[in-house]
């Protein structure tokens, strides 16, 4: 189970990595959105957990760039958006991608971790990409 975490708040990034690894996941992390994009296009992940407000670009930019590789449907399955700024506009935009949205701070940590770990069908997606 491969998880990518894109989060520039290192304390959150490292804590999440540790918590997910404890539950058996393989976790890679990025603080920079641009570096993450390059990596996403190169490697396959079962889950991409992405903060919305990064220092260089936004989580939306990352998703838009990922469209080069994934279809909208697939984006909805792979991506989880984390946000601390739940303004109605931001939420509306996030909902357009139909992916899971987690508000920071998490109201329920276990629920959030399970959402990240509960992976379905992504294997099929990547197999398809590889045969292409």
């Amino acid at each position: 189970m491969n998880i990518l975490i894109i989060e520039d708040e290192l304390l959150i990034q490292k804590s999440l990595k540790k918590l997910l690894e404890k539950r058996g996941a393989t976790v890679k992390t990025f603080a920079s959105g641009r570096d993450a994009i390059k990596d996403i296009l190169k490697n396959n992940y079962d889950r991409i957990v992405c903060d919305l407000m990064l220092k260089d670009i936004t989580g939306f930019d990352i998703i838009e760039e990922s469209k080069k590789k994934y279809q909208l449907k697939e984006i909805a399955q792979i991506f989880i958006i984390m946000t601390a700024y739940n303004s109605p506009q931001v939420l509306a935009k996030a909902k357009e991608y139909h992916c899971t949205i987690l508000n920071k701070p998490f109201e329920n940590l276990e629920f959030a971790l399970n959402a990240m770990l509960n992976i379905s069908n992504t294997k099929a997606i990547h197999e398809q990409h590889e045969t292409n």
């Binding site: 959150i12 920071k104 701070p105």
Partner: peptide, 17 residues
């Protein structure tokens, strides 16, 4: 709020670990 809630969240998570 914007600037503090993130690091505080990080502090909370890491202290639990």
């Amino acid at each position: 709020r914007h600037e503090l809630s993130n690091p505080l969240f990080g502090l909370g998570l890491s202290s639990k670990i």
